[in-house]
């Protein structure tokens, strides 16, 4: 059933209406709310996270840099961790080791990630908090692939999508393929 729902959600992502609120604990055990995070934000960037995933590890310094450079423009970044095998302590230790400097929603029952139709870690969603619609879904950039890594990215998908959202124009490339660690949705 989970898989059926997931496949329908992903096959029909264009049917996505609006992003509801999600309240999840962070690594300190505090409950954080997606909509509250959007209160004073111009855009939200949600990145699917997993402990021990080499793709997330490699992207961590890149995410840190982007989050810092877009913070003055009101963009907020957060991870969403749906891995059943990652407990809060492991996530905290991983975030300390690979310091992306952004908070995490611990999505223990996987429902937030399922609703957001994440298929893999590193998959990134840009949300416009004025309308709670998804403006971009896909990779951060095209540098890291399963077979290896390009010297530098050819496409800066996330950066470009944020630029369009902040400029109030339609996102030119609203989706791309994300490479990461496939998420297992378990009952």
């Amino acid at each position: 059933m989970t898989l059926l729902l997931l496949s329908i959600l992903t096959a029909c992502s264009s049917l996505f209406l609006d992003v509801p609120d999600f309240k999840r604990p962070n690594t300190a055990g505090e409950i954080i709310s997606l909509h509250k995070m959007g209160d004073d934000a111009t855009a939200l960037v949600l990145i699917s996270h997993g402990v021990d995933c080499p793709v997330i590890q490699q992207y961590s310094p890149i995410i840190k840099e982007m989050a810092a450079s877009f913070a003055p423009k009101g963009v907020r970044f957060a991870f969403v961790n749906a891995n059943t095998q990652d407990d809060a302590q492991e996530v905290a230790a991983d975030l300390k080791e690979y310091d992306a400097g952004i908070p995490v929603f611990l999505d223990e029952n996987q429902k937030m990630s399922m609703a957001l139709a994440y298929k893999t870690t590193s998959e990134t969603i840009v949300i416009d908090p004025k309308t709670w619609t998804i403006k971009y879904r896909g990779a951060i950039d095209d540098q890291i692939r399963y077979a290896g890594r390009l010297g530098k990215p050819r496409h800066h998908y996330l950066k470009d999508a944020l630029g369009d959202v902040l400029a109030g124009v339609p996102v030119k490339t609203p989706s791309s393929r994300a490479y990461g660690c496939a998420i297992s949705y378990l009952d």
Binding site: N83, T84, Q85, D86, C181, A182, I183, S184, Y185, L186
Partner: peptide, 10 residues
């Protein structure tokens, strides 16, 4: 085993 299942899709 739970960790293996958590990685099953990968």
């Amino acid at each position: 085993y739970p960790t293996v299942r958590g990685w099953s899709q990968m």
